[in-house]
Design a protein around this nucleic acid. Structure first.
Lengths: 217, 217
DNA sequence: TTAAAAAAAGCTGTTTTCACCCTATATTAT
DNA sequence: ATAATATAGGGTGAAAACAGCTTTTTTTAA
């Protein structure tokens, strides 16, 4: 066993959570928090000025640059940095989505500190950390042989915009006006998203998108 | 200035946040965290076994017993304990709702540590802490002379149940079956909630309820 | 470079659900 | 008695959901 502390960084938009977590982990004698960042773009800035962390704890829903995008950027530019996703939700879609984006593990914010530290140590050592939560999802996806469900949901710019506008009291007609598109085109987006999210109503779509952490409330 | 630390407690269902925050505040030399709890019911149990805190930091959306209910219980049973609401959202409804329930202040989880400590000190000294966020809401409510908007939203059991079932892909007809009620009764609930939340669609209702922290995703 | 393929945008319908009226009755509380 | 509340019903127009089909643009690759 090496006595070296593991260097990490924390990316999350809730200041109190981020800094509290930093304090909590610093006390462990097993982890050293190099820096923390408010979102992906902020992290990229701070990466240059600092020693590279071995592990980055990554929130998913953040302004400016979210966890999916930031993780993909990291795997592209710093493939040796391990990403451990940290989220409130234990739904299939964000878990599968973050793993596909390149995260090596997925932990809940409801976790106990000891479990999080175990995960950090695990991912630093093996580049991945598979807990019950993650292995359960992976196994179920194989057993149901439903490669469809595994599909991380990819949205283009217009679909993303439409999805955000859907989370409101606006009618589709109003949304069409706002996006300067025909209501018929909007209807195509709606149909496409209903299929991708496997829902039958706008309400279901909104709930599903929120749980997938693809939009922020 | 007294050199006594302020005794506080933290009630929040996200373990990492709760414990991280406890660590963060403990380091300040101005605050002493007596205990923390997972939700309102958990807090009530721990209140008996401990010295009474001067201030309780209270999350709103929690399982079993939420922040509104817990704050009302505290004001009923321990009126001298000051409640400082701690939430992710800066919407009118949760702010007004928590203040009406008896909270003496409202802070965001996006706040900086120093601001939170100021708020804790303020509320311990004056039993209330009015920051820009809160005063803005209060002022706007007076200026618009809309006592309607100020109304904290009160829901009965059936409305609460209906609201939860609304956050889904179910049709109203399906919800009626689940609640063993006529679709017309359900329609009455819908109408009542639309008015209380001031919305014109089910999607708007769901979004509004989530932002009001009256339902948990 | 041009043809084929794929994706995006737009249009025409039909069916279902939603949103909004008004009324009525039984129960409970004042 | 009367008012308030929860329940249930009928009916209507608008919006949403679903299906099928062109046209245009972009991408791919022959």
């Amino acid at each position: 066993m090496t006595s070296e502390k593991i260097n990490i960084a924390i990316v999350d938009d809730h200041t109190l959570f981020r800094q509290g977590l930093a304090k909590l982990l610093s006390e462990s004698n097993e982890v050293n928090v190099l820096f923390d960042a408010d979102n992906g773009a902020d992290m990229i800035k701070k990466l240059c000025d600092n020693q590279l962390p071995e592990v980055i704890l990554m929130d998913i829903t953040m302004p400016v640059m979210d966890g999916y995008e930031t993780t993909r950027w990291l795997k592209e530019n710093y493939p040796d940095i391990n990403v451990l996703a940290l989220s409130m939700f234990e739904e299939d879609k964000p878990i599968i989505g973050m793993l596909k984006s390149g995260a090596g593990g997925y932990m809940l914010k409801q976790s106990r500190t000891g479990d999080l530290i175990s995960a950090i140590k695990g991912i630093a050592k093996h580049s991945f950390y598979i807990n019950e939560l993650v292995s359960g999802k992976l196994l179920r996806n194989i057993q149901n042989n439903q490669p469809v469900k595994t599909a991380a949901i990819e949205l283009n710019k217009n679909e993303q915009k439409f999805l955000e506008l859907c989370c409101s009291d606006y009618t589709y007609k109003q949304i069409a006006d706002m996006m300067n598109l025909s209501p018929h085109t909007i209807d195509n987006y709606r149909e496409a998203l209903f299929q991708k999210f496997d829902v039958k109503s706008r309400t279901g779509l909104v709930i599903s998108a929120l749980k997938s952490e693809l939009i922020k409330l």
